[in-house]
Amino acid sequence: MKSYLPVLLPLLSGLVLFLFALNYLSEGLKAISGDRLKEWLGRFTRNVVTGILTGVAITTLLDSSSAVIIMTIALVNTRALSFRQALGVVLGANIGTTFSSQLIAFDIGQWAGLPMAVGLGLMLLSQRDWVSQSGQVLLGLGMLFLGLFLMEEAVEPLKHMPTVKTWMQGLDSAWWGALIGAGVTVLLQSSSATVGMAVILEGQQLLTLPAGIALMMGAELGTCADTLVASIGRSRAALRTGLFHLTFNLFSIVLGLLLIKPFTALVQTLSAGAPAGRQLANAHVFFNVIGVVLIVGFVPFIATRLEQWLPDNHSEKPQPVAN
């Protein structure tokens, strides 16, 4: 066990910093945007396509699909957003979350001090709220990069540990890898952290691309836990929104695991010449975009079935206005 402590302790430090930075960055972006995010969700979700685009934009901005979907569920619960309006946002959030994996694939950890220094300076020297909030975003971004850098440096010695390499090879079993990815995501409460670690491990050649893809798919399932919990005790429409998220992710994951070999070949072809970590980040994008494209035409059908299976309570239905 002692031989692993020099790896585990820095890895834990980097992971904690990464998770804190994600939350800190998200809070800073929320502070800058204020109530405009809710306005955008209500205004630009008139149909599935605009809902998807809105979900992509807001999730990319907040760097958290769970936060966007939970916010959407809350809006559906208060009837500020209809159940059908919310479905496009859920699909778009799954695409928007891939922005973080693309960012992680860049080797920019060594530059973490620059946005941290600028951000801290803005927070300390400016009296204006929006400048201070912008500083918080930069500081959070820098801490995110630093956390990734610490994790990347920490796992490098694992390449020379036979026990670790043997365990990592076991993740080549797609279903087992997906189960591990889902479990880690539920534990960390962040699919971005799970995918980020997978990108780092693949970049260090500790993971094969198929194993990384399986972990990534599992992370997509694990992130449903937050949204399902957020749906409990809410209206039937809000609960249907959480169930739609689960249904979509399960469909994509099962199909992806069944077709993992041709999907891996597709990723390798489209990412020819790209570094290992970048290939997994690209796989994350391809997986979610393909899933949305395959299911978007069936959204009205799925929505109708969910409404039939879980209809609104009488108290939740709009009451006729008396003359």
Rank of each mutant, 00 (worst) to 15 (best):
H314Q: 09
A80E: 15
L201C: 12
S33P: 00
D129W: 12
I290S: 10
S132L: 06
M216G: 11
G256L: 03
G177C: 01
A265Q: 00
L25N: 03
A74K: 15
L258M: 05
T269M: 04
L122R: 06
L11A: 09
L125V: 09
L29T: 05
S235T: 15
W167V: 05
L124S: 11
L255P: 01
L25T: 04
L15T: 07
M216C: 14
L179V: 02
L87F: 08
I253E: 12
F44N: 06
I32N: 06
M151G: 00
L250K: 06
A178P: 13
S64F: 14
S235K: 14
L150Y: 06
A303T: 01
V299D: 03
S126D: 15
L280D: 01
L81M: 12
H245K: 02
M1V: 07
P6N: 07
S3A: 14
V89Y: 02
V131F: 09
M123R: 10
L53P: 06
F251H: 11
Q85T: 09
N47I: 02
Q136I: 02
K317R: 10
L239V: 12
F244A: 03
V267G: 13
G147I: 01
F149Y: 03
L207P: 07
R278P: 00
A86M: 00
R36Y: 10
L62N: 09
V68I: 08
S82H: 14
F83Q: 00
S173H: 13
G242I: 02
G273Q: 00
S3K: 13
V184L: 03
M71S: 13
T304P: 01
H314A: 13
G273N: 07
I260N: 08
I58F: 12
T98N: 11
T223L: 10
P318C: 10
P157A: 00
Q319E: 15
V49S: 15
T304W: 14
G273C: 07
E202G: 11
L294K: 11
R79N: 13
L41G: 07
L15H: 10
V184F: 03
L158T: 12
E307V: 08
N313L: 14
I58D: 09
P10D: 07
V16R: 07
G170Y: 13
G218H: 07
F287M: 00
V285F: 01
L250H: 07
A198M: 05
S3Y: 10
L246S: 14
G121L: 10
L9M: 03
F106T: 09
K30A: 03
H245G: 03
G203R: 03
H160E: 15
T194C: 05
K317H: 06
T59E: 08
M116I: 15
R79M: 13
L270F: 11
L179E: 07
I95T: 07
G51I: 10
